[in-house]
Nucleic acid binder design. Structure first.
Length: 634
RNA sequence: GCCUCCGUGGCUCAGUGGUAGAGCGCUACAUUGGUAAUGUAGAGGUCGCGAGUUCAACUCUCGCCGGAGGCUCCA
């Protein structure tokens, strides 16, 4: 057989030669690194004997496919280790994930201490250096017989089409499509990281499973690097920095309800001012609607039937009321407060609305997942033929605003009709197409999420990554033909009748001010750009006699400032200001007081002495006006 | 809500079946210091809440509340 290599070279091999032999024939060093081989684009393990002419590519841990194979094999090792320690456990599925792998087990309870034992057992298995062998079942029944004691595997086999295969390593056999590492000894570092509850097939009504997560590498150094990255990320945790910088707090008296401190509010207000500015420029107007509204509105809007589990209810004067989980129904009342003409459309009505949603206790997570938050909401009421342009307008604004904060890694998802929805299929198709076309027009790559839309319409979501690599939904654009109907919104067309329904576009760019600020804290690791920093400059005096002069200069600059009046040493005050991540530190002593010049320190530790006041002001104003990402005076 | 783990002064964390300690912070005094921690003294805790076991619980058990990492859900 003739084998073609990626560089175009060809070589003749005997029929039945394995990938591993071919790899060895090229270079010994390379063979050791190669994990698998693709033959005519099909992934195989190195141990598989090859037949016929083929073009081959060797995969290493650096390739996504190689990584997946490596971690999938590691998941088998994990399952084998668990079964050695807990023979009664029933393995279900164990895939590779973005970072590592997991395996789900039924019929077993695993404590934190067990994880250590499992890891030790896994290491023994790796040392045994098994070579996984493949077995093909002639029939479904044969496969079911093999896995008869595991109803989950039997269920999987039931649904399979084509050849059913299993892999065996030592005493452990698992149902698996493969391929696998040729030798398990290639796993040089193996760590069991955490456990979690999970459900069979991810449905809460199914059996509860125990999920065990792990990660592995072909080199111990890579594991060390991975752990270092995790530790660095932890230092950026917004909950930690939020406490250190005195931005916000949470209290037992209201789980999931953030309390904003003065500096946190300074930050939020700066962001809001910016938001209001760009929206005004783009023709938005702003409203404010009540937080509490009565039952009849929520019934008409569909929230009573489709969103009740997330809402807070109470009775006033014997009537049911709800705290708003969304701003739209209230906003619609403003639109309907008088008759509208087609000439007024599109109407873009913004609202920084405080919404409350009763989220499950287990999902709360700092500012990322709270029970009350401020949406930078807006509803665009437009004619059907204006929808496409309006979506493009929102997309432009979304990318402009994200860029202002230095976010270039934004993942976009398009979510379609969920099972629980209002409105006709026809409306949903129209709305989904409008979103899709806008994305394609702007050349934005997106992932499709079938059945993940809001109950009233499909949506585009924008996801931003936090320091731990988790992604969080921020902005959203939702096209809604349904609510205009259920809430009976009309406008007068050029035919002089009110028989026209506008289309409603719901959109938010930050999504939640709270979440967005949480992400910003981690994104900047607390070192905010000058325009955002709650305290932009901190004044430090050499001695108490310089305080009056410091106060005078501070007022003149027109920046958000603090003066350190503590009786600490200069060094201590500098240290504190650095730890508080204040972008500019101005030291005032005899020198400055006499010459009228400034001594300015930036967060990187560099100090500029003898700076002219006017020049300093000019540079700082420029940094603020341009919303510069870093604060340097050079 | 589910799984695993955690809950000691404002913060970070030691600690023991016989009712508690450190550093930072805070207060006072002394020091007025030139770019990452001046010194001395002092105040501050019913060891998350409730019940049980025990002669005795901060320590053991159970329940609740809150937190962490996941699952599911979501902005």
């Amino acid at each position: 057989m003739n084998i073609t290599f990626p560089d175009g070279s060809k070589k003749e091999f005997k029929e039945g030669t394995t990938g591993s032999d071919i790899a060895l024939s090229i270079s010994e060093g390379f063979a050791r690194k190669a994990l698998a081989i693709t033959v005519n684009g099909q992934l195989q393990d190195l141990a598989t004997p090859l037949t016929g002419d083929a073009s081959v590519v060797f995969l290493t841990f650096d390739d996504a496919q190689g990584k997946e194979l490596f971690w999938h094999s590691s998941a088998h090792v994990l399952a084998q280790a668990v079964l050695r320690l807990f023979p009664e456990a029933k393995p279900t599925i164990g895939p590779a994930i973005e970072q590592g792998f997991y395996y789900d087990f039924a019929n077993v309870k695993i404590s934190e201490e067990d994880l250590v034992k499992i890891e030790e057992e896994a290491k023994k298995i790796i040392e045994q250096d098994f070579r996984p062998t493949r077995k093909e079942f002639a029939t479904k029944d044969a496969a079911k017989k093999e896995f008869a004691t595991n109803k989950y595997k039997v269920e999987l086999i039931e649904e399979m089409e084509g050849g059913i295969t299993a892999y065996t390593q030592g005493e452990f056999t698992d149902l698996c499509r493969g391929p696998h590492l040729p030798r398990l000894g290639m796993i040089k570092a193996f760590k069991v990281t955490k456990t979690s509850g999970a459900y069979w097939r991810a449905h809460a009504e199914n059996d509860a499973l125990t999920r065990i997560y792990g990660i592995s590498f072909p080199d111990k150094k890579l594991l060390k690097e991975y752990l270092t990255v995790l530790e660095e990320a932890k230092k950026r945790d917004h909950r930690k920095i939020g406490k250190e910088l005195d931005l916000f707090s949470f209290h037992e008296e209201g789980a999931g309800f953030p309390f904003w401190h003065p500096k946190g509010m300074e930050l939020m207000n700066t962001i809001i001012d910016y938001w209001k500015g760009v929206h005004k420029r783009d023709g938005y107007v702003e409203i404010k609607t009540p937080i509490v509204l009565n039952r009849s509105l929520w019934e008409r809007s569909g929230h009573w039937d489709h969103y009740q589990k997330n809402m807070y209810f109470f009775k006033i004067d014997g009537g049911d009321h709800a705290v708003k989980p969304m701003n739209c129904p209230g906003g619609v009342l403003v639109f309907k407060s008088r008759k509208r003409s087609y000439k007024e459309l599109p109407m873009k009505i913004g609202e920084l609305g405080l919404v409350h949603r009763h989220e499950l206790a287990g999902v709360l997570h700092g500012l990322f997942r709270v029970r009350s938050f401020t949406q930078d909401d807006a509803h665009i009421y437009c004619l059907p033929e204006q929808v496409a342009d309006e979506i493009v307008g929102v997309l432009n604004l979304v990318y402009e605003i994200y860029a202002t904060f230095g976010f270039d890694n934004v993942a976009v998802e398009l979510s379609t009709m969920p099972d629980d929805h209002i409105g006709s299929e026809d409306m949903w198709t129209k709305a989904t197409n409008a979103l899709r076309e806008a994305l394609e027009k702007k050349n934005i790559a997106y992932q499709l999420n079938e059945g993940d839309g809001a109950f009233y319409g499909p949506k585009i979501d924008f996801h931003i990554r936090d320091s731990m690599g988790r992604t969080w939904q921020c902005g959203t654009i939702q096209v809604d033909f349904a609510m205009p109907e259920t809430l009976d919104i009309t406008y007068m067309g050029d035919d002089g009748t009110y028989d026209h329904r506008p289309v409603m576009i719901h959109r938010a760019i930050f999504g939640s001010l709270e979440r967005f600020i949480g992400i910003l804290i981690e994104h900047y690791a607390g070192k905010f750009p000058l325009w955002l920093a709650p305290v932009q400059v901190k004044f430090i005096t050499v001695a108490d006699r310089h305080l009056d002069y410091a106060r005078k200069v501070a007022k003149e600059l027109g920046l958000r400032y603090e003066i350190d009046e503590n009786a600490d040493t200069l060094n201590k005050k500098v240290r504190n200001a650095q730890l508080e991540q204040v972008p500019l530190i101005i030291t005032i002593g005899d020198q400055e007081q006499e010459t009228g010049k400034l001594s300015v320190r930036t967060l990187d530790g560099s100090v500029t002495q003898g700076m002219d006041l006017a020049e300093f002001k000019e540079r700082v104003q420029k940094l603020i006006a341009t919303k510069a990402q870093t604060t340097t005076l050079e």
